[in-house]
């Protein structure tokens, strides 16, 4: 989130309140649960690291806590580095895979049952994501994020189906 906040300040300085609204709009329904504190904590950390500076704005009695944030040169470098970066979250499947193999080996549980339970759980998540996606208008950018979530879940479900096929063969039941 910190990198996104920096990037939002790259064009022009902005109020903390504005930053939070923009962030929520970009995340759509997925950003609704984000609380205000999270953004201010992140901003404080960035200021401490010398990547942004803040300045209290005057003449707005109804919003006494309003601060205007701006990027420092170090912050600008960090934004450029972030944009150039190509790192990607790694799929975390090994854990479940190991759960299946060890459970089967030690006869702790039926791997097919484990897969089915996992599938149900993922289907419920998919249902939530899918319903949220359907509620989004066609041109919403936040819908794209939901679409990504849906596709990830779909990929995971297909992998589970493959696991189920493999584990339901008798020769694989140890």
């Amino acid at each position: 989130m910190q990198d996104a906040l920096l990037a939002m300040l790259a064009k022009e300085p902005s109020y903390g309140y504005h930053l939070r609204t923009r962030l929520r709009r970009a995340l759509g329904p997925l950003g609704e649960s984000m609380n205000a504190g999270q953004v201010y904590v992140a901003l404080t950390r960035l200021e401490k690291a010398g990547l942004i500076v803040s300045e209290r704005a005057d003449g707005l009695p109804e919003r006494p806590d309003r601060k205007m944030y701006a990027l420092t040169p170090a912050g600008q470098q960090r934004v450029a580095a972030w944009l150039a970066e190509v790192s990607w979250p790694k799929p975390d499947l090994a854990d479940f895979h190991l759960k299946l193999t060890t459970a089967a080996a030690a006869r702790l549980a039926d791997p097919v049952e484990l897969v089915a339970a996992q599938r149900r759980e993922l289907m419920r998540r998919l249902r939530d994501a899918q319903h949220a996606a359907l509620a989004e208008p066609d041109d919403s950018t936040a819908g794209l994020l939901l679409e990504g979530v849906v596709l990830r879940l779909q990929a995971d479900l297909r992998w589970l189906a493959a696991c189920e096929r493999a584990w339901s063969g008798d020769e694989n039941r140890i």
Binding site: M1, Q2, L27, P29, L30, E32, S33, M34, Q38, V41, A42, R45, A116, R119, R120, M123, R124, R125, R127, D128, A129, A132, L145, V149
Partner: peptide, 22 residues
């Protein structure tokens, strides 16, 4: 082989679906 109720059993909350690093 399986019969699952999806409706009513979900949280309806979406925050579990993504992880936002601080």
């Amino acid at each position: 082989v399986d019969d699952t109720r999806l409706a009513g059993s979900t949280t309806g909350r979406l925050d579990g679906l993504i992880r936002l690093e601080d």
